[in-house]
């Protein structure tokens, strides 16, 4: 494992910790998209089907369990926790997330590395992850007061995607057999979606003002 991959996984982990910290300690999920969180839970459930079949390393197994557990915990908090659920901004979280699941599934059936159940689910999860941030970005645009933790959550999530691209470039030159067009193209699309957010995040950080995304 190279440094980019490790740094990517760690920023991913930090993003989840930041979000759980906000939800668990402040008991608020204001500005957080339940749609995006549900999509992530589905992404991890589909991708980590191989958890008990295909062993990579202890590191991989533990990280998979962490991402699975945390994503379902966040969804549980937002849907069921009696205090947290009241802070959910349902009116503005209107992205029709169900409608992007089916196209991703069809794409997974058509474009995969091997036509087996696990490989189709893997490809499906890659495509779904690429667009899963969309409801969150839409909600951020509609949120007047984006709190720091929410902004940092999205920032770390985006940083994780950028670092994964560096990881692939590194692996491409160091591991001649490492070619994953599906994850590379989907990953680049996913990272580009953060472009606008990054621009305004860095701007707000430089000028020391509260983050606000133009509608």
């Amino acid at each position: 494992m190279n440094l980019f991959r490790l740094a990517g996984d760690m920023t991913h982990l930090v993003s989840v910790v930041v979000l759980l910290l906000k939800i668990h300690t402040i008991k608020s999920c204001a500005g957080v998209s339940l749609k995006t969180q549900e999509l992530y839970a589905l992404v991890f459930a589909a991708r980590y089907l191989d958890l008990f079949v295909h062993f990579v390393s202890l590191y991989n197994t533990v990280m998979k369990l962490v991402f699975l557990a945390s994503s379902f915990t966040i969804v549980w908090y937002m849907r069921r926790h009696k205090i947290v659920r009241r802070t959910y901004d349902k009116e503005h979280d209107t992205f029709r997330h169900h409608f992007i699941v089916l196209p991703c599934l069809v794409l997974g059936l058509l474009l995969n590395e091997k036509f087996t159940f696990r490989e189709v689910m893997w490809a499906f999860s890659i495509y779904l992850e690429a667009v899963a941030i969309l409801p969150q970005l839409v909600l951020l645009q509609r949120t007047r007061n984006i709190d720091n933790l929410t902004a940092q959550y999205v920032f770390f999530l985006g940083a994780y995607r950028v670092l994964y691209i560096f990881n692939w470039i590194y692996r491409y030159f160091t591991e001649p057999h490492f070619v994953h067009w599906i994850s590379w193209i989907a990953g680049i699309v996913q990272t580009l979606l953060y472009g606008d957010f990054f621009y305004y995040y860095i701007l707000s950080w430089k000028n020391n003002v509260k983050l606000e995304l133009p509608a």
Binding site: R5, D9, H12, R47, D50, H54, V56, S57, N60, M63, K64, F67, E113, K114, E119, W122, Y164, N167, E175, P176, H177, F178, V179, H180, S183
Partner: peptide
């Protein structure tokens, strides 16, 4: 193109 089907990333 050789494809490494062992998905070792998260």
């Amino acid at each position: 193109v050789m494809v490494d089907i062992d998905h070792d990333e998260l």
